[in-house]
Simulated assay, not measured.
Amino acid sequence: MRLFGVLIVLLFCTVLISFDQKSEEETLIYSYNHPETNQEFNIVHVYKLYDNYEKRIEKDSTTPKERIFEEEVIEPVVEACYQDAEYFERSGKTYSVEPPEDMELVNAIINTIDEEKINNAIKEALIESANYIPSNKATNVCIYPTPYDPDLPQMVTEGTGKISVLYTLFFDEEFLKVGIAHEYHHSVWTEKYFNRENSDTVLDILVLEGKAVMFENIVYPGNSYEDPSYPFLTEYWELVKPELNFYDAYRAYEIIYGGDDLPEDYGYNAGYHLVKAYLDSYTSLTPEEWTELSGEEIYEDGKYIEIY
Rank of each mutant, 00 (worst) to 15 (best):
Val106Gln: 01
Ala108Met: 06
Ala108Ser: 14
Ile109Thr: 02
Ile110His: 00
Asn111Gly: 08
Thr112Val: 04
Asp114Leu: 06
Asp114Ile: 06
Glu115Arg: 13
Lys117Asp: 11
Lys117Phe: 07
Asn119Leu: 04
Asn120Gly: 09
Ala121Val: 11
Ile122Phe: 00
Lys123Trp: 02
Lys123Leu: 01
Lys123Phe: 02
Lys123Pro: 02
Glu124Arg: 13
Ala125Phe: 05
Ala125Val: 09
Ala125Pro: 04
Ile127Gly: 00
Ala130Met: 05
Ala130Gln: 06
Ala130Tyr: 03
Asn131Arg: 14
Asn131Pro: 04
Asn131His: 05
Pro134Gly: 15
Pro134Ser: 15
Ser135Arg: 03
Lys137Cys: 05
Thr139Glu: 02
Ile143Leu: 10
Ile143Ser: 02
Tyr144Asp: 00
Thr146Ala: 09
Tyr148Ile: 13
Asp149Gly: 00
Asp149Asn: 15
Asp149Arg: 03
Asp149Cys: 00
Leu152Lys: 14
Leu152Ile: 13
Leu152Asn: 13
Leu152Thr: 15
Gln154Leu: 14
Gln154Cys: 10
Gln154Phe: 13
Val156Cys: 08
Val156Pro: 10
Thr157Trp: 02
Glu158Ala: 09
Glu158Cys: 06
Gly161Asn: 06
Gly161Ser: 08
Gly161Lys: 03
Lys162Trp: 03
Lys162Thr: 14
Lys162Ser: 07
Ser164Met: 04
Ser164Lys: 02
Val165Arg: 12
Leu166Gln: 06
Leu166Val: 12
Leu166Tyr: 02
Tyr167Gly: 06
Tyr167Met: 11
Phe170Ala: 10
Glu173Thr: 14
Glu173Ala: 11
Glu173Trp: 01
Phe175Gln: 05
Leu176Ser: 12
Val178Trp: 00
Val178Asp: 00
Ile180Gln: 01
Ala181Pro: 13
His182Trp: 09
His182Leu: 08
His182Asp: 08
Glu183Cys: 02
Tyr184Trp: 09
Tyr184Ile: 14
His185Gly: 05
Ser187Ile: 15
Val188Asp: 06
Trp189Arg: 12
Thr190Gln: 10
Lys192Pro: 05
Phe194Cys: 07
Phe194Trp: 11
Asn195Glu: 11
Asn195Thr: 12
Asn198His: 11
Asn198Ala: 13
Asn198Thr: 11
Ser199Asn: 12
Ser199Thr: 10
Asp200Met: 12
Asp200Pro: 00
Thr201Phe: 05
Leu203Gln: 00
Leu203Val: 02
Ile205Thr: 14
Ile205Asp: 09
Val207His: 01
Val207Gly: 04
Leu208Asn: 11
Leu208Phe: 12
Gly210Glu: 06
Gly210Ile: 04
Lys211Asp: 08
Lys211Tyr: 07
Ala212Asn: 05
Met214Lys: 07
Phe215Val: 07
Phe215Met: 08
Glu216Met: 00
Val219Cys: 09
Val219Asp: 07
Pro221Ala: 03
Pro221Trp: 03
Gly222Glu: 06
Asn223Asp: 12
Asn223Ile: 04
Glu226Ile: 08
